[in-house]
Amino acid sequence: MRAHWSVLTFAALIVLSANAWDEAQAQPCSGLNLKIDSEGQDATNGANAFAYKITNIGAKSCTLDGHPRVELLDTKGQPISDMAIEPSDEAAGQEAERKTPVTMNPGDEAFFAIEFPTGRHTDDCRNAVELRATLPGTEMPATFPGSFTACGPVKVSPISADAQPLR
């Protein structure tokens, strides 16, 4: 019986070591292996926040590091150049806890959020009809239709493996 448990323990260590090796060898993610979905919206305290879920749909582990590049687009599909967009360690009312690269195994999810002030009726407000997000290290943007009225800088959180940022 003792030899049986030793073999099982040894087999479990091999599997765990193989998984750790895969994660250690993970290359930067390619846009072809990732899918971005809108994950929800929250409007509180004079701000709108939008969460986005990234899923590794590829066959290998990969890493994402940093903030996505976000652009808000006008009705002609052009970036609104005078709208400030700032990487931030805090967006959607939560401080980002993980600032290191996120390793995504096949099927894993990661998240980011954007947040911007609303409600001020000043010249600082800009209206957008689409959001375009490009993940770090990739060149393939994802575009999301919507109504985005920002009355101040747009904050973009870093990518995090933590739970969905609006919950």
Rank of each mutant, 00 (worst) to 15 (best):
residue 3 A to L: 13
residue 4 H to K: 15
residue 4 H to T: 08
residue 5 W to N: 10
residue 9 T to M: 13
residue 10 F to M: 11
residue 11 A to M: 14
residue 13 L to A: 14
residue 15 V to F: 13
residue 16 L to S: 09
residue 17 S to R: 08
residue 20 A to E: 12
residue 22 D to W: 12
residue 26 A to T: 02
residue 28 P to T: 02
residue 32 L to I: 08
residue 32 L to W: 12
residue 34 L to C: 10
residue 35 K to E: 13
residue 35 K to D: 09
residue 36 I to G: 01
residue 37 D to R: 14
residue 43 A to K: 15
residue 44 T to N: 07
residue 45 N to T: 00
residue 45 N to S: 12
residue 46 G to N: 06
residue 52 Y to E: 00
residue 55 T to E: 13
residue 57 I to Q: 13
residue 57 I to F: 05
residue 58 G to H: 01
residue 61 S to F: 10
residue 63 T to W: 10
residue 68 P to C: 04
residue 68 P to T: 05
residue 68 P to M: 03
residue 70 V to R: 03
residue 70 V to E: 02
residue 71 E to R: 14
residue 75 T to D: 13
residue 79 P to M: 06
residue 80 I to H: 03
residue 82 D to N: 15
residue 82 D to F: 10
residue 84 A to N: 07
residue 84 A to W: 09
residue 85 I to H: 01
residue 85 I to F: 08
residue 88 S to D: 10
residue 91 A to S: 12
residue 92 A to V: 06
residue 94 Q to G: 04
residue 95 E to C: 00
residue 96 A to Q: 07
residue 97 E to M: 12
residue 98 R to C: 00
residue 98 R to H: 13
residue 99 K to D: 05
residue 99 K to L: 15
residue 99 K to Y: 01
residue 99 K to A: 02
residue 103 T to S: 07
residue 105 N to H: 11
residue 106 P to D: 00
residue 106 P to L: 00
residue 108 D to A: 14
residue 109 E to H: 11
residue 111 F to G: 01
residue 112 F to E: 02
residue 112 F to C: 06
residue 113 A to N: 00
residue 114 I to V: 15
residue 114 I to L: 12
residue 115 E to F: 06
residue 115 E to G: 06
residue 115 E to C: 01
residue 117 P to N: 03
residue 119 G to C: 03
residue 121 H to L: 07
residue 123 D to A: 07
residue 123 D to E: 06
residue 124 D to V: 09
residue 124 D to A: 11
residue 125 C to P: 09
residue 126 R to K: 15
residue 127 N to K: 13
residue 128 A to G: 15
residue 129 V to C: 01
residue 130 E to N: 13
residue 131 L to I: 06
residue 132 R to N: 08
residue 133 A to I: 15
residue 134 T to Q: 14
residue 135 L to K: 08
residue 135 L to P: 12
residue 136 P to Y: 07
residue 139 E to H: 07
residue 140 M to T: 14
residue 140 M to K: 15
residue 141 P to G: 04
residue 143 T to P: 12
residue 144 F to C: 05
residue 146 G to I: 07
residue 149 T to E: 12
residue 149 T to K: 14
residue 152 G to N: 00
residue 153 P to C: 04
residue 154 V to L: 14
residue 154 V to Q: 01
residue 158 P to I: 02
residue 161 A to Q: 05
residue 162 D to N: 10
residue 162 D to M: 07
residue 162 D to G: 07
residue 163 A to T: 11
residue 163 A to M: 08
residue 164 Q to A: 11
residue 165 P to Q: 00
residue 165 P to L: 03
residue 167 R to P: 11
